[in-house]
Design a protein around this nucleic acid. Structure first.
Length: 423
DNA sequence: TCTGGGGTCCTAGGACCC
DNA sequence: TCTGGGGTCCTAGGACCC
């Protein structure tokens, strides 16, 4: 797939850059004594944690992302463990994204360690796309971490190509070779096809992207809905969707927090306290983002297979956990019966009114937004919510809990990294 | 003593209105 | 005398991604 740089690139040029074992690589960068050794970033085995990222040295033992931590510990007992340092990952990620933006304004960040970029010749640059990819890899490596890149004529091809060679891979799918590149690959290689779709496709005798590409789009629509025809086109290498540039920021649709507990919660008292705890975390993030929502969702997980949610509309948009948390507690009655053990509690707020996002400075008083109809007790609670934000901003999420939350401070919620990487 | 946490998108059924 | 059909909103759940 190597190509000399002097052959002109025909058509669109879309790249996908993926940072190699990102969280673990940053840890090895910051702890020189960990380099060359198995490093695992993730939750602890004793608390139902999972692996977020494993260094390549740990992967040799079979450890991978999303694996239960107890299993990883068994496979690689000598691994160095850390819960991660999210702010530091963010900092390096921002530097990497700046490198991409220096090449093209068309950058679509997918996650903390992944981004599409459009370097089609003639729009914003006249260089060969392959040369640009090589330069990106070089500049990223100067930060002390590495990345793999896939380059092709659309996002699907670029994404799959980026996974072919890691770490430090540059995989190029030349214009015109998309279909033959994709055809032999298993359907699962394409993002959007998970285990459920893989199973259904397999029952239809479809195992490779080549077989998928030959199907009648309308037949697939009758089985997979709107995503059916899209799946067929993508498998054929014909995807056209563009790289969304940074000028069109994502609109946030929901904000949620959830916690899995080391031991199942069994009493109403514990559940109410847990709901208060996650509601407070959600409220803090809503205010930080300047969002108020009209929909509250309570999520409970009784065992690994069974998650239930209950939702309720509010009369007025809010960002105050004392308001939406109380509603979440009411929803408890529709989901839970006394005596049932609960392993996870989550509270989400959604239903944001497009027009409103307003950045509220962390240390601002919110002078102009006080709802006039607020009764004095409500006003006090809102002031309390804002005061807690300031403390959390300075000392971290676990620095402060309302009294009834206290018991959870050391039983879960380790401020482990909030994102996870490379499936 | 077995699997996290943050999201998005899609589907489907029921209520309700006209 | 009794009953169509379209549209929209709300709710619950599932698949999927990183």
């Amino acid at each position: 797939m190597e190509q000399t740089i002097d052959i002109p690139w025909q058509g669109r040029a879309v790249g996908l850059m993926d940072l190699d074992a990102f969280f673990a690589s940053v840890e090895q960068l910051d702890h020189p004594e960990w380099r060359g050794k198995p490093v695992i970033v993730g939750g602890s085995a004793e608390r139902r944690g999972v692996v977020s990222t494993a260094s390549y040295e740990a992967r040799v033992f079979g450890v991978h992302s999303a694996m239960p931590s107890w299993q990883a510990k068994r496979l690689c007992p000598q691994a160095i463990w850390t819960h991660g340092h999210y702010a530091r990952y963010r900092e390096l990620s921002d530097k990497v994204m700046a490198i991409l933006h220096a090449q093209t304004p068309l950058v679509e960040q997918v996650s903390i360690d992944e981004a599409f970029f459009d370097v089609t010749p003639g729009r914003y640059n006249h260089e060969n796309p392959i040369a640009i990819c090589r330069r990106i890899q070089e500049e990223v490596s100067e930060l002390g971490i590495t990345c793999s890149i896939g380059l092709g004529t659309n996002k699907t091809v670029a994404k799959i190509a980026s996974e072919r060679q890691k770490p430090r891979g540059l995989t190029i799918v030349l214009p015109g070779t998309e279909a033959s590149f994709l055809a032999p690959l298993p359907v699962r290689a394409m993002s959007g096809i998970g285990s459920a779709s893989e199973k259904r496709l397999s029952e239809m005798g479809i195992h490779t992207l080549g077989q998928l590409a030959e199907r009648d789009p309308e037949q697939m629509r009758s089985i997979f809905g709107v995503s059916g025809p899209r799946m067929v086109a993508r498998a054929a290498g014909l995807e056209q969707s563009r790289v969304r540039d940074a000028e069109e920021p994502d609109e946030v649709k929901s904000v949620s927090n959830e916690r899995t507990f080391a031991h199942d919660l069994k009493t109403r008292e514990e559940l109410v306290a847990a709901i208060g705890h996650v509601s407070a975390l959600t409220g803090t993030r809503l205010r930080r983002k300047g969002l108020t929502g009209t929909q509250v969702t309570l999520k409970l997980k009784f065992d690994i297979r069974h998650t239930h949610t209950a939702q309720r509309q509010l009369d007025e948009p809010t960002d105050d956990e004392h308001v939406f948390g109380a509603v979440a507690v009411k929803l408890l009655n529709s989901l839970w019966r006394e005596g049932t053990g609960v392993r996870l509690v989550g509270v989400a707020v959604s239903g944001f009114d497009g027009a409103r996002p307003r950045q509220l400075g962390l240390f601002d008083e919110d002078e102009d937004t006080e709802p006039q109809e607020a009764t004095p007790p409500q006003r006090d609670l809102r002031a309390l919510s804002i005061a807690t934000d300031n403390i959390r901003a300075r000392f971290g999420n676990d620095a402060l809990s309302y009294g009834r939350d206290l018991r959870f401070r050391h039983t879960e919620s380790d401020t482990a990294p909030k994102d996870k990487r490379d499936f």
